[in-house]
Each structure stands twice: as C-alpha cells, then as structure tokens.
Write a protein that binds this DNA or RNA. Sequence first.
DNA 1: GTGAAAGCGCTAACAC
DNA 2: GTGTTAGCGCTTTCAC
Lengths: 338, 338
Amino acid sequence: MKVTISDVAHLAGVSTATVSHTINNTRYVSGETKEKVYRAIAELGYTPDASARSFRTGKKKTIGFIVPDISNKFFATMIESVENHLSAHGYHLIIANTKESMEREENTIRLLTAGLVDGLLIASTIDDFARFDALIPPGFPVVLVDRTFEEKKYSSICVSNFQPIYRSVCRLAGKGATRVGIIGGLPRLSTTKERIFAYQQAVTDCGLAQDEGLIRYGDSMENSARVCLDELLTENCDAIVVCQGLMASETISYLNLKNIRLGEDIDLVSFVDYDYDFYQLYSNRMDSIIQPVEELGDAAGEQILRRVEAPDAPVFEKVLTSAYKPCGFSGVQSHSER
Amino acid sequence: MKVTISDVAHLAGVSTATVSHTINNTRYVSGETKEKVYRAIAELGYTPDASARSFRTGKKKTIGFIVPDISNKFFATMIESVENHLSAHGYHLIIANTKESMEREENTIRLLTAGLVDGLLIASTIDDFARFDALIPPGFPVVLVDRTFEEKKYSSICVSNFQPIYRSVCRLAGKGATRVGIIGGLPRLSTTKERIFAYQQAVTDCGLAQDEGLIRYGDSMENSARVCLDELLTENCDAIVVCQGLMASETISYLNLKNIRLGEDIDLVSFVDYDYDFYQLYSNRMDSIIQPVEELGDAAGEQILRRVEAPDAPVFEKVLTSAYKPCGFSGVQSHSER
DNA sequence: GTGAAAGCGCTAACAC
DNA sequence: GTGTTAGCGCTTTCAC
C-alpha cells in the first residue's frame, strides 16, 4: 500500500504538519525532530505524492511546450535547451506536437491549460490572433516562441527574420543573379511573412526581377521542397533562398540528383538549422543563416518561469539575431562555434 | 475565481454527483438533466480541474518518456510517434532528456514515478540492471525502448542489431576489404554490445583481420565520430561500419573534408536513422541500415498503455527488424519508402 | 517548536 | 434517476 505523510508522522511520533514542514523547509524544526522524521521517511521509503501536492498547492511544477514539429531538428534542439533550463529549476516539460495543425493546437491548448501545466510555451501554427487568444484562459502564463502575432498581448522570444534574408538577396544580386527565387514555409506563419517581405523589399531595392512565380511556399515537412524547386527551375531561377532547414536539405539533395551544381549552375542561401553536418559539406558553395536555437530555448525557459512566478508582469519581447555565414567563410572550426 | 463542480451543480440545480456523472458518462443521466448541466457548464465556462481529478482517481493520463538525447533525430522521431499514439488515446507525454547521464536518469526516474506519470517509457543509459531496477517502484508500469537488459523483468521494444551488422561485415568482406573497422556507440549500451558482438563474429567467420584497434567507441554526440575515424585511419582500415546515425553524418562529412572518396578509397556501411536526406546523396556509394523508428515508437506507446491498464500482464518483448539497403539500391523513390 | 484540523475539487460508494 | 457525503494526501492557518 501507498505510504503517506501520516504514516511517517505516526512512526516518527510527530504531527503531519511537522513532517510537511521538515521536508519542505517551510518552518523551523528542531534538529532532533528532523532526525526522527528523516529516519521514519527512510524506514518507510516514503515519497510525497506529486499529484496530491499539486492539487493542494495549485502548482504543477510543469510547463507545456507546444511545437509544430518535434522531429524537426530546429524544434528538437529548442526543446532540449528548454528542458535543460526547466529541469535545473525543478520543473518538468510536457510536449505536444501539432504537426502544424491548428485544430491539434487548439485541442492541446485547451487540454494543457485545464490544470495540467503552470505555463505554456507555444510556437503557434495559428495565424488568427483572436482565435488563438480565445483559447488562453485570462491570466494564464504564456510565452510565444519563434512565431508571434502583430498584437503584442503575449510575451515572445523570436529571431529576427528580416535582416538575414535581405542580406541574402543582396549578396545573390551582387554575384550577378537576376532571377532570385525563394522557398518559404507555411504562408500563414509570422516567420514566413517576415522573410517573404524582406525578400520582396530586397528584390525591389536591388533591381531584380519581380515575379510572383519566384515565390513558392512549402510546408517544411518531408518532400515539400522538391515541388517548389521544380517550379522555381521552370521559372529559370539563377539563385534560390530557402527559408527553412529541412527544406534546404531537400533542395541540396535534389539539386544533386538533377546534377545541378551548387555555386556554379545555381546559387543558394539557406537557413541551416536542420542538420549542421549536412551543410558543412556545402559551406564553401552557399551562404548559410544560422539561428541561435539554444539561446532561443534558454530564453524561452527563463521567460516562462518568470511569468509563472509573476503572471502580471508586463509583456516582454526579445528578438535574437541569426548568424550569417557567407559562403566558404570557414571549415571545420565553424562546427564548434555553433 | 476558479469555477468548480459545485458552482455548476448549484446553477444547474442538481448535485455535484450528477454533474460529475454527466461529464464523465459514468452513470445514467436523463436527457433533460444533461441539458441543464451542459448549459450551466457553458454559462460558467467550467473546466474540470485536472489535478483534482488525477489526485482523486490516481490516474494522471500522462506517460513519461526518458530519452538519452532528444535532439538526435532517431529519438525525436520516436517521440513523435509515441506522442501520436498516446494523444490518440487521451494521454499526455512528459519527456526527460538524460544526455546519456546515468545520474540524470536516476533523478528523473525518481521524480516521474513519484505520482507524476502513470507509466514510463525508458531508453535507458544505465548498464547495471540492479541499479536500474532499484529505481522502479514495485509494480510501476515500465516499458524499455530500444535498449534492454539481459534480465527480462521489464517489457521491451527493441530493434535487432545482430543481423544487419553481421551482414554489413560480410558484404564489405565480399567487396575485398580486409581490415574492417567499426565505430560503436557508448560501450555500456545493450545496442552497442550486440552490434560489436555481431561485428566480431562476422570478422571471425569471414576471416578478416581481428584487431582490437579496429573497434572504436564514440558517444553519439557531436564531434565524437571524428576522433574515432582518425584512429581507424591510422589503423589502415579499408572499410568502416558506423553504428549510429549522427556519427555516420560526421564520418561522411569528415571523409569528405579529408578528400577520402566514399566507395573508392574506403567502403562504408552505416545506420542512417539520423537524417535521411543526407544519406540519399551517398546511397549509391554505401550500404545503409534503416531502423523502423516509427514502428518502434508506435509499439512502445501501445505497450505502455496496455501495461498501465494491466500492470500485472506478463512481460512482453518485441524485436523489430531494420531494413538493409545495399549500396545503390534505389534513388529518389526510397525516400517515400522510408 | 509543534499539533490539530480545515479543506483544495473531484469521484464513487451508498442511499433512496 | 439523482442526491449525500466521505475521503484521496497534502499544505497551512490558527492555536498553544
């Protein structure tokens, strides 16, 4: 049978209050009494029941993290650093994978906010702020990660998207490209919108071909980049910007299969968060944009804990910057720099 | 203030029992009463408190998954399929990342079994069965995943390691290799032991060079493969077997940097779970071993739920088999086959 | 320096 | 067909 706090109290010859205060260090207990309590705990093999405790206190010591795709290395790495931060502060992490489905996201938000977690980290796939906002119980601690909304009601930790993409296009133009194509992620995402906007502005500023056909959207899942790439090749692109790591892998892979040589037949710039080893092989033939994933996760963990402790703290926004690694910038060393 | 079940009962003019039975479908309630209850729920915006509920019932509807490295695509993909299975059955997933640290694993097992989860999925990094066993409360539902112990006390879902490695060595011998090296994972892991054993047996059977120096162990984390590879090259290997996906990426990447041509200067066979796109570029120059990650995760999810419902069910063991993809076996199509 | 006891919100006998 | 009520194991106020 389960051993409870009163079993311990009884064996130690003290009250349950004393046992509770002893294990929680929450009021003075004499050394002698402590001794007795710990002895009883050891003897009975007592472990305080976490659900009773969180029921009583209202604190679950658990944070939920809603991600769009856990098998995507970008998010997997973020989860890892979030988990690091949380476990160092005695918190647990519940993860939920939406697979970029708004419906799944709605369901999990409802589930998790119903007393399962103290706070929520969300890389939302929802584009409609009102729809999102309606799901969050008033005052519930939430931090948006990587993706945000125009309405600044919730705290957020993001990465700047404009600058690296703008620079990419300029550099491609500088190399002589005239028809620069872009493969974006899901059109509804804030990250995609910002990147496409930066692309469009740079294309205009650099005097490159402006053509709707040069803008393609993938879903950042497997095999989505191939279709986009085929379309872009039909449009006679001479350079391509890829907005997401997995799609970049596929692009490179596919160009290879088609015997289109990177840096010779076609120029490429890409976000390379997905799998660093892969890009290293090509780092002298393309520009890379490296997002600060670990810092993202760490900052997210920090912010959500802060919010859990002070739910009424003012909205906090942090924008990190990506590293831009021009083609051939470095070889082996860059790996540890990461 | 929080709205509770008695607020609902009061507004609906019924007892809390009726409200409870209505929302849980746990005894007959007349249509009329149901109507009133749901109306009251809607009006008050009532959501049953999950911690009160799990405190009362003892069921958390949550499974914990202890993984050694969440940013490793092999485990990330497994987590994804586990999560799929669980959420389809109304369960949540708590993940904990041990980073291959036995100490971290011990801590999380203790934490999670203390009333946080109904059952535990563990890809353990602990090699000592007694040490592991001591951490699990008697009768607590546990399913071992990917890694197991000689002692068959716990249910397990694993992938066969012997056959693919044995075959790899034979094929390399068949191509004329005489000094076949191997890069294994952490020596203490069951998977590593099985693979090294298979390697040794095949080396003997095929009459290849037997040399302790040809066996190297990495830790499956970043940059571990390079060291092993350097050592193997010093040993004048003419073929290499790599036992883990991330290390395989690094091996290929590093060979490339050193201008050692795959399939010409050196032959390679490897587990390729890590990032499929990467290998596709090399699939015509090396053999690949593809582990059934999704099935692993799915089976794990299924088994742990079964055990949660019937903790005394007999020990269950499942061994899945990897696909062996000989060099140049297929091109683009293989991707969707995956 | 320690104890007694009141609940937290819910479920599930038991009663009618 | 529905209501009453006793706890689940813990924390915490109030009391001494």
